[in-house]
Design a protein around this nucleic acid. Structure first.
Lengths: 341, 341
DNA sequence: GATTTTCTGATTTACGTACATCAAAATTGG
DNA sequence: CCAATTTTGATGTACGTAAATCAGAAAATC
């Protein structure tokens, strides 16, 4: 049978109350007594029954998700996943609230973080905007004992407990290898469509992409990055333009959102041409384009997995429990026509 | 606040005991009363607190995993993951036991299933061998009310509650597309190395592979399947032989285990040749080969995810809870050099 | 040695559910 | 209508932990 608090008490020769004081780090226990109890815990291999503990505490975890108010498919998907999690939340003793902040606006994010610090939620998940003041705000929360995880976009150099997102440098490298291999030794130029180079994940993807291209596919040269601001209209215009002006373009890497415009441009201009395309994020648009051959491969991060992972991590941190690392690793999904979910 | 059994009782105007009788389908409740209670449950949106319920029941789920006694890296990885799950099991109120049966032996599997039926575990996960008598044995268990999930290899036509594994036809198609695209329009022949065509997953992979090859890459022809029985020695010999005899081989699809032999053969013979290779299952061997360029892509199923998913599903079935479908979908991971975990 | 302060023990209630028992009420059969 | 039966109510205990109270013991202070 699993050992209980009573077993600890018996084994350590102390009372239940003392065991409780030690377990829940309440004051009023002499050092020697505390050690006796801790030894007993170790010796009989006690593990707290979290379910019973939470039942007793009547605890509900209140988590907050801070999201940028971006209007693209990926963010819509993300909020949908959070909604689903909210729907499940009563069962899991969690209470999840989302806060929207203007996108790419460090100050607004900092304000939101500071406001949250005052209410002391059981945990915070945020899509980070990469700026020193945000790092400082996050660090302040962490020092204050509030679990913080970054979602989708990380905050390097901060004390955040965990990052629930993909390795974007690896994603860029993977995209480069796919494009390079699919092009099978052809010479030519590669266009890169990004949202904005101000966003860390986009920068990182480009960095990985460019590095691997230079290293392994020297016959393919990368054109100056097209910044479409994740906007379909703008992407459409810019890509159309590039394809008309430059007929040496053999491949395109779309590392941001706004793929609707890219696809439209490809369908119009691509008729007579053979352009190999690798894009990010599986959405209804990119899925259709993959199936009809406009796009050759899609790199994806599973928003549902990210949200669930973030919640699991926050919960574990709040309870002081350990994680199954492999389970919390967010994978970079590669989708071809044939392995779509 | 979350409604409790007391709220149901108050709302339905009955006693707690009656609510309990309805909730746990105990006898002795008139039809009309039962309906009153059920309506109340629906109206106030009661959901049973599973943690509290299990605490009260003192319940521990006893699950059994039935595994083939195969000696390859994938199965070793799978058993390692199960071991990890066993280590975590006390925390999750589960008790997991594994049973080994001879590989590819339907009769042995049926015997094991029947023996288990007698002890009525809370759930069974099995790596299925595809045979009618196994289907019958599984169906008998399911009819008897025992949750059953298939792991890694499915049992089509059976009543199993769930399959925790990848879509092997899609895997074969994906392999074909990768090989075809990587070969970039080259003409030539493709060798296929399988374990045995008696195993359903291998058959399905081949089926998907052949279908897509024929359809989209007519310049690549598939050679008769090499059956290496998932044995490194045998695979080594057969592949070496094939490579020596046939210099039109430009690609290899290894859809089973025993990749150690394949890699050895490729390293010996491949020096002067350019053979594109897609293999299944990420193991220390295949990982090294991917990194050194001997293998070009690895298709993988995450054994850890499969095991955890199987346990979650069994638990949900045992509790009569619903699942998050997306979470239980086992993905086909595609690994290139750059996105290895 | 008396007094204050710091620890420790004993005990109780609570969380939400399961399960058992016994008595009381309602229903059914004859 | 009475007896037999079925249905319902009232109540208590249990699961493993948290948290609180209060009394008593031990240690520290003077």
């Amino acid at each position: 049978m699993k050992p209980t608090v009573h077993d600890i008490a018996a084994h350590a020769g102390v009372s239940l109350a003392t065991v409780d004081r030690v377990l829940n780090q309440r004051p009023g226990v002499r050092h020697v007594t505390r050690e006796k109890v801790e030894n007993a815990i170790r010796e009989i291999g006690y593990v707290r029954d979290v379910a019973a503990a939470n039942l007793a505490k009547g605890r509900t975890y209140s988590f907050v998700f801070i999201l940028p108010a971006s209007n693209n498919s990926f963010m819509h998907g993300l909020t949908a996943e959070i909604r689903d999690a909210v729907a499940r939340s009563p069962v899991e003793r969690t209470q999840i609230r989302t806060v929207e902040v203007p996108a790419f606006d460090p100050d607004a994010l900092v304000k939101a973080l500071q406001a949250l610090g005052a209410e002391r939620p059981a945990g915070i998940a945020l899509v980070a905007t990469d700026a020193p003041e945000v790092v400082a705000a996050v660090d302040a929360l962490v020092r204050d004992g509030i679990p913080v995880v970054t979602l989708v976009s990380d905050l390097t150099g901060s004390l955040r407990h965990h990052y629930a997102g993909v390795d974007n440098i690896a994603a860029g490298r993977t995209a480069a290898r796919l494009l390079g291999r699919f092009l099978g030794g052809a010479k030519g130029e590669i266009a890169v469509l990004a949202g904005s180079m101000l966003v860390r994940d986009h920068r990182e993807r480009l960095e990985g992409f460019a590095a691997l291209m230079a290293q392994e596919f020297p016959d393919l040269s990368i054109l100056p990055v097209i910044e479409g601001r994740d906007d379909p209209e703008m992407a459409h215009m810019l890509v159309s333009d590039a394809l008309s002006k430059n007929d040496r373009i053999v491949g395109i890497y779309s590392l941001g959102a706004g793929n609707r415009g890219l696809i439209k441009a490809l369908k119009a201009k691509g008729a007579g041409r053979q352009v190999t395309v690798v894009a990010h994020e599986l959405t209804p648009n990119t899925r259709a384009a993959l199936l009809d051959g406009t796009i050759d491969a899609i790199l994806n991060q599973d928003a549902g997995h990210e949200v669930r992972s973030a919640i699991r991590v926050l919960k574990a941190k709040a309870d002081g429990l350990s994680l199954i690392d492999a389970q919390e690793r967010i994978r970079l999904d590669i989708f071809l026509k044939d392995n779509l979910p």
